[in-house]
Amino acid sequence: MKQSETATHGRRAVIELREKILSGELQGGTRLFEVPLAELLDISRTPVREALSRLTEEGLLDRLPSGGFVVRRFGFSDVIDAIELRGVMEGMAARLAAERGVETEAIEKISETVRLLDDCFGEKLDEVDFDAYSELNERFHHQLAALSGSEMIRREVERASSLPFASPSAFLPDRADIASFRRSLRGAQEQHRLMVAAIAAREGSRAEAIAREHARTARRNLEYILAEDPGMISKVRGLAFIRH
């Protein structure tokens, strides 16, 4: 098999297996082996092996000492810890950016992203272009991590954000169409604006505090679903494999 074809199959395997895990089709504790998965996906073992290693790095799988892999079990406390960890890492990135100073061009780029995010909101309080917001929100957080000027910090922010429920767009309304979630995005957007302003003003402590509070949006959305509308669990990507 050509190297490019192997890479293509590997990406497809990662996407398909990740989706099966997040949808709950492959539940926590399920053991996974290369040969059956290769047959299921109709590809060779090499891209399956690479996909399993990638999903292990993302934290969705654990490697078994005896061979093979197992789908990780996640509890509510694990999710909360992951969200808090992302907040800590992004807060550190924001503080370092403010204290070390950022090139004007970098501030202009992230400010432009904030402006484009503004355009995602309509006149009504809960009117939001979710698809555009989600894409631009991810861009903002990548730019924020890079502003620290530290490749180590950038990598750790990306690592902390890699699990679906800890990512910047975790539990955003999407197809769930929860009006209160959509309205909360306006508050999150204001935090984007305040973060950039604090970094530009070299206010490290303020930038860090805003970034840490901002990360908790995912926690509040999760708590709303579990406490107020548990019927949404099956409709929000990633919740199916969290033990409640």
Score class of each variant (00 low, 15 high):
90 E>G: 01
91 G>T: 09
92 M>Q: 14
92 M>W: 05
95 R>W: 07
98 A>I: 04
100 R>W: 07
101 G>A: 02
101 G>F: 02
103 E>S: 02
103 E>H: 03
104 T>R: 08
104 T>E: 12
106 A>C: 09
108 E>C: 03
108 E>W: 00
109 K>I: 06
110 I>F: 03
111 S>V: 00
112 E>A: 10
113 T>P: 04
113 T>K: 02
113 T>E: 03
115 R>L: 08
117 L>P: 04
117 L>G: 06
118 D>S: 13
118 D>H: 12
119 D>Y: 11
119 D>A: 15
120 C>Q: 08
121 F>L: 09
125 L>G: 00
127 E>H: 12
130 F>C: 11
131 D>M: 05
131 D>F: 10
134 S>H: 13
134 S>I: 02
135 E>G: 11
137 N>Y: 07
137 N>S: 15
138 E>F: 12
141 H>S: 02
143 Q>T: 02
143 Q>C: 02
145 A>N: 00
145 A>V: 02
148 S>C: 08
149 G>D: 09
150 S>E: 04
151 E>K: 12
155 R>H: 12
157 V>C: 15
159 R>Q: 12
160 A>R: 05
161 S>F: 00
162 S>G: 14
162 S>W: 03
167 S>F: 05
169 S>I: 15
170 A>K: 00
171 F>Y: 13
172 L>Q: 11
172 L>T: 12
173 P>H: 11
175 R>I: 04
177 D>T: 01
177 D>P: 01
178 I>E: 14
180 S>H: 06
180 S>G: 02
181 F>E: 00
181 F>G: 01
183 R>M: 14
184 S>C: 07
186 R>D: 05
187 G>F: 11
187 G>H: 06
191 Q>D: 15
196 V>Y: 10
197 A>P: 00
200 A>G: 05
200 A>P: 01
203 E>Y: 06
